[in-house]
Design a protein around this nucleic acid. Structure first.
Length: 571
RNA sequence: UCGGGGAUCGUCCAACGGCAGGACUCCAGAUUCUGGCUCUGGAUAUCUAGGUUCGAAUCCUAGUCCCCGAACCA
C-alpha cells in the first residue's frame, strides 16, 4: 500500500451546515431542476490565503457533494490592481489544494461586451442613467446612515441622451471621471447600496487581459451577479460583508434578460488567531519586506503554508472542522496545528537531526569502528521499512538534552545518568569538558554498554530517557530555519497598527546543524519528522546543489516544556 | 442614530419544542526505545428580563452587547 493512502485525509464527506440545508430544501422543491453549480471568484490582486481555502473547500466541496460543478472565475474588473502573476499563483494554489475546474476557467473580463450590452439594456428600460457630476457632488448627494440621499439632476436625463453619452464613454471621448453610469433605484433607501450605485466608471488603465480595448469598466455589484447568471450558477456563496449587497444583486438580475437568477448566500469568513488574513495587510508585509515574499513560510498564504510544509490534506481537514456559519469569530490557530500534526504524524518519515550539537565521546568505543543501527522509518507503519544509521565513537546530541544541574523529573542526560541513544545503545555520562574561558560545556565523556546494542539492554533494565543523535564522522551539515508565529498578539487586528505586533523572533536560522547521512538525499518539499523535535521539510527554493536547507513546519507537542515551565513558575 | 446580520463551553461547530453534544485547548492518569503517537478520565456554555408551554437554547415581547455598511475597490 502506498504511503500516501495511509494519511489522515478526512475530506471524504464534509460536515453539513446551513448552506447545505438551504440546498437540500431547494432540491426538494425542484429548484434549478435539482442542479447545483457554484463558483470560486477570486480577484487576481493578491495570493490566496487560508481564508480563501475555506471558501474554496466550501464551493468545490458543495458542488462535489451534490454531484454538481464549481467554476473558477477571476473577478477582474479593476485593472489597476490585477495582474497575471496573481492569476497564475491562484490557479496553482487551487490545484495544489486538490480541486479541479476542468474546462470551466472563466474571467469576468470575458464578459465585458455582454456586460456592456446589458448596461445599454438598463438605459433603454430607464433603469440606468449617465451622471455627469463630479465625484464629490455624487458622494455629497448620497446622504449618510441617518439622512436619505438626493436625486442627481441627471437622474431624469432622457434615455437617448444617456445612451449617446454611454457610447461616447466607451469610445474614449471623455477623460477619467467625467461621467459614470448609475443604476436608477432609490436615493432614499435605508440601504446605501441601493442609492443609485455607480455601475460603470471611466478608467484609462491597461487591463492585463483586455489590454487597452476598454476605458470603461463595470463595478463589482453589477459585474458579479451578471457573471454568475451567465455561467448558470445556482448558489452564489460569499462572505458576510456582502449581505446588504444582496438586494442589489437581485435587483440587477431582475432588470435583465439573463438566463437564470442565482441565489446569493453569505457565510462568515475565516479569521485565525495570531495572524492577519487581509490581502491588503499581507501585501503590506510583502511590500515593506517584513517577510520574504508571498511564499514566506510564516505567511498564511497557501504558497507560504506549502513552503512551510503544510499539506493540502491538513488544510482541507481543518476547513472541514471549522464549519460554516454566520457568526464571525476567530478560530484558534491551535486547531490548524492539530490537523497539521495529525496528518504529518501519519505521513512523515522519521529521521534524526541535531540542531544545536553537543559533542559526545564514547570512551570505551573503538576508534574507527562503526555500529550500524537499524532504525524504523515509521514506528506505526513497519511496512515503510527501515534504514541503517551509523554510530561511532563520537556522536552529537542536542545541547538541550544535557544539564549539569538537572531539574526535577529530568530523565535526560546529566553527569552519572544513563540514557538510551535511540536505536543505538545505552550510554552513561562520566564527565564534562568545559571551555576554560567561558565555562561552556563543549564535550561529554561517556561510556556505552555493549550489551545494549540496538537500544535494548540484555538485562531488561528500564531507561526512561531516549535521545536522538548523529554520528560525528557521518553527519551532514544542514541549515535549519525555525519558524514561529508571525504575530505575538492573539488578535493583531485589534490595535492601531498590526505591524507593531509582529513577533520579532518569528524566524531563527540555525547553521551547522548535524543530520543523519540518509538526509543528504532529501528533496525540496519532502517531509520528515526529526525525532523528538518536530516536523520539517526540505525548503522548496533553497534546498539544492547539495546544500541542505530544512524548514521547521511545526514542533512536536512538548509536555516536558510544560512541566519545566511550571517548575520555573513555582520557583 | 439609519439599514443589514449575529449572540451556546476559553475557541469553532451541533442540537430545528423533549436528557445541551462533538472537536480543539486545558487538567489528571495509563502506555511508550520519540517527554511524540495512542488510550482512559475530568473541567468548562445557552447574553439579560419577562411571557407561552407539561416541557424553551429553540416560540413571543422588551432590552443589552458585538460585527458589517456612507469607493468611480472587490
Amino acid at each position: 500500500m502506498p504511503a500516501q493512502s495511509q494519511t489522515s485525509d478526512s475530506s471524504t464527506q464534509p460536515a453539513s451546515h446551513f448552506i447545505h440545508d438551504i440546498i437540500d430544501e431547494d432540491r426538494r422543491a425542484g429548484k434549478n431542476g435539482g442542479r447545483v453549480h457554484t463558483r470560486f471568484p477570486p480577484e487576481p490582486n493578491g495570493y490566496l490565503h487560508i481564508g480563501h481555502a475555506k471558501s474554496i473547500c466550501l464551493n468545490f466541496g458543495t458542488a462535489k457533494k451534490y454531484g454538481g460543478l464549481c467554476n473558477l472565475r477571476f473577478d477582474d474588473t479593476n485593472p489597476t490592481t490585477e495582474n497575471p502573476e496573481y492569476v497564475a499563483s491562484i490557479q496553482n494554489d487551487v490545484r495544489w489544494l486538490g480541486f479541479e475546474w476542468d474546462d470551466r476557467l472563466f474571467y469576468a473580463s470575458d464578459y465585458f461586451e455582454k456586460l456592456y450590452q446589458f448596461a445599454e439594456h438598463l438605459i433603454e428600460t430607464d433603469k440606468a442613467y449617465v451622471d455627469s457630476q463630479t465625484h464629490e457632488q455624487i458622494s455629497a448627494q448620497r446622504g449618510d446612515f441617518y439622512r436619505p440621499g438626493q436625486d442627481s439632476p441627471d437622474r431624469t436625463r432622457a434615455k437617448e441622451e444617456s445612451r449617446a453619452l454611454f457610447r461616447r464613454m466607451r469610445a474614449g471621448e471623455f477623460p477619467d471621471g467625467a461621467h459614470v453610469l448609475r443604476a436608477k433605484i432609490d436615493m432614499r433607501s435605508g440601504n446605501l447600496n441601493l442609492r443609485d450605485p455607480v455601475i460603470y466608471r471611466i478608467k484609462r488603465a491597461h487591463h492585463y487581459r483586455t489590454a487597452d480595448s476598454w476605458c470603461i469598466y463595470p463595478m463589482y455589484d453589477y459585474a458579479h451577479c451578471v457573471s454568475d447568471a451567465l455561467e448558470g450558477i445556482t448558489h452564489s456563496l460569499c462572505t458576510l460583508e456582502f449581505e446588504d449587497h444582496r438586494p442589489l444583486y437581485d435587483w440587477c438580475l431582475d432588470q435583465l434578460p439573463v438566463p437564470c437568477h442565482p441565489q446569493q448566500i453569505e457565510f462568515a469568513r475565516l479569521n485565525l488567531s495570531y495572524t492577519v488574513l487581509s490581502k491588503r495587510k499581507l501585501l503590506q508585509l510583502v511590500e515593506d519586506k517584513l517577510v520574504d515574499g508571498w511564499d514566506d513560510p510564516r505567511m498564511p498564504t497557501l504558497a507560504g503554508l506549502r513552503r512551510r510544509g503544510y499539506t493540502p490534506e491538513a488544510i482541507r481537514a481543518f476547513c472541514d472542522r471549522v464549519g460554516v456559519g454566520k457568526r464571525d469569530g476567530v478560530v484558534d490557530v491551535s486547531l490548524l496545528e492539530y490537523h497539521l500534526r495529525e496528518d504529518l504524524n501519519a505521513r512523515a518519515a522519521r529521521a534524526m537531526a541535531v540542531l544545536r550539537p553537543l559533542r559526545v565521546v564514547i570512551e570505551n568505543f573503538s576508534e574507527g569502528e562503526v555500529l550500524w543501527c537499524e532504525a524504523q522509518n515509521h514506528p506505526e507503519y513497519p511496512e515503510r521499512g527501515s534504514r541503517k544509521v551509523p554510530f561511532g565513537r563520537v556522536v552529537y546530541i542536542e545541547q538541550d538534552d544535557f544539564r549539569e544541574v538537572p531539574p526535577k523529573k529530568w530523565f535526560r542526560l546529566t553527569v552519572g545518568s544513563e540514557v538510551r541513544l535511540r536505536y543505538a545503545c545505552l550510554i552513561r555520562c562520566h564527565a564534562v569538558v568545559k571551555d576554560p574561558a567561558t565555562g561552556e560545556v563543549t564535550e561529554l565523556r561517556c561510556t556505552w554498554d555493549p550489551d545494549s546494542r540496538g537500544g535494548s539492554p540484555k538485562d531488561g533494565r528500564k531507561v526512561k530517557g531516549t535521545l536522538h543523535w548523529v554520528s560525528a564522522e557521518h553527519a551532514k551539515d544542514a541549515e535549519v530555519r525555525l519558524y514561529d508565529r508571525l504575530f505575538s498578539q492573539e488578535n493583531p487586528n485589534d490595535g492601531d497598527d498590526f505591524k507593531s505586533f509582529l513577533n520579532q523572533s518569528s524566524l531563527q536560522v540555525l547553521r551547522g546543524c548535524k543530520v543523519e547521512p540518509a538526509l543528504a538525499a532529501s528533496q525540496p518539499a519532502e517531509l520528515y519528522q526529526f525525532e523528538r523535535l518536530g516536523y520539517f521539510c526540505g525548503d522548496n527554493k533553497d534546498l539544492r546543489d547539495g546544500k541542505l536547507v530544512f524548514n521547521r513546519t511545526i514542533e512536536l507537542r512538548d509536555s516536558w516544556a510544560k512541566i519545566e515551565g511550571r517548575q520555573q513558575g513555582e520557583s
